[in-house]
């Protein structure tokens, strides 16, 4: 215990509560209130309506929910596959190679997302790599931006995995593919699931690169929210934001239960 005295602990808890309340909860509370507001002319909203949510469930807003979910799942699955593959491959290399190539994997996450979008737009606007105006370039942009996080999570899981498990499996006759499927992946499952969750959450909230590359008919939630608020429809934007938060949180909580179940069987 870092703070021993009762008054000291009270002070620390108060500061923490204030910080969490002001920095995290207050903005969300304002958006939540706005999403149900019929009007907001004073300090507080002056009417309650579900109209913004009703509108969000239909038409363009409904399409945005689907586009975001589809993009998030596709990009996260791709990022997870490539990140896991890269982490496994780099682990087999020497530490120097592993470190160098590992840093390369993180380069896209250090570049502004708008620049990533711009780069993809330029790179894939000519045949034979013409992806401009397709859904694929949105998924590709998300994949580029989130793959580093998948790689990082899986690498961390592999680094914490004692070599004994795989060595014993190998000695018992397990070929590499069998060993990977039955031993390695189950043992790092919590990290794999966390990697997917983080990638999905990042993809769901991605705006910078998406606004540069999204084609007509594939408007993601953040782009739709940006468009609505840009046009002054703050309440509809707030409703879509809450839907985005709800969908993302639901999936993350669901994913969180998977590693807990796996860990429950561990020693």
């Amino acid at each position: 215990m870092l703070v021993w005295s009762r008054s000291g602990r009270f002070l620390v808890w108060t500061v923490a509560a204030l910080l969490i309340g002001v920095v995290f909860l207050a903005p969300l509370a304002v958006i939540l209130a706005a999403s149900f507001a019929a009007q907001w002319n004073g300090a507080l909203p002056s009417g309650f309506t579900l109209e913004h949510y009703r509108a969000a469930g239909t038409g363009a807003s409904g399409d945005a929910v689907f586009a975001s979910l589809a993009t998030g799942v596709a990009a996260s699955v791709l990022a997870l596959l490539s990140g896991t593959w890269a982490a496994l491959a780099l682990r087999a290399q020497g530490p120097a190679w592993s470190r160098t190539l590992g840093i390369l994997f993180f380069v896209p996450s250090a570049v502004p997302s708008v620049s990533v979008g711009l780069g993809l737009l330029v790179a894939f606007s000519q045949r034979p790599l013409l992806l401009n105006g397709t859904t694929a370039i949105v998924i590709l942009a998300h994949f580029v931006l989130i793959s580093a996080f998948s790689f990082g999570n899986v690498s961390a899981g592999l680094a914490r995995l004692p070599p004994d498990f795989e060595e014993v499996a190998s000695c018992l006759g397990a070929r590499p593919a069998y060993r990977l499927a039955k031993v390695t992946l189950p043992l790092i499952a919590p990290y794999v699931v966390a990697a997917f969750g983080l990638s999905f959450a990042l993809s769901m909230g991605e705006l910078g690169a998406t606004v540069m590359v999204y084609p007509p008919g594939w408007v993601t939630l953040p782009v739709a929210i940006f468009g609505l608020t840009d046009r002054g429809d703050v309440f509809s934007g707030a409703a879509l934001t809450m839907i985005l938060v709800g969908v993302t949180l639901t999936l993350l909580i669901g994913l969180e239960r998977l590693p807990i179940a796996a860990a429950g069987r561990r020693g």
Binding site: P162, D164, E167, V168, K182, L187, R266, G267
Partner: peptide, 13 residues
């Protein structure tokens, strides 16, 4: 061959 190691390395899952 088969091997038994110090921490047994039983597969926890």
């Amino acid at each position: 061959l088969a091997m038994v190691v110090q921490n047994y390395a039983l597969f926890p899952h």
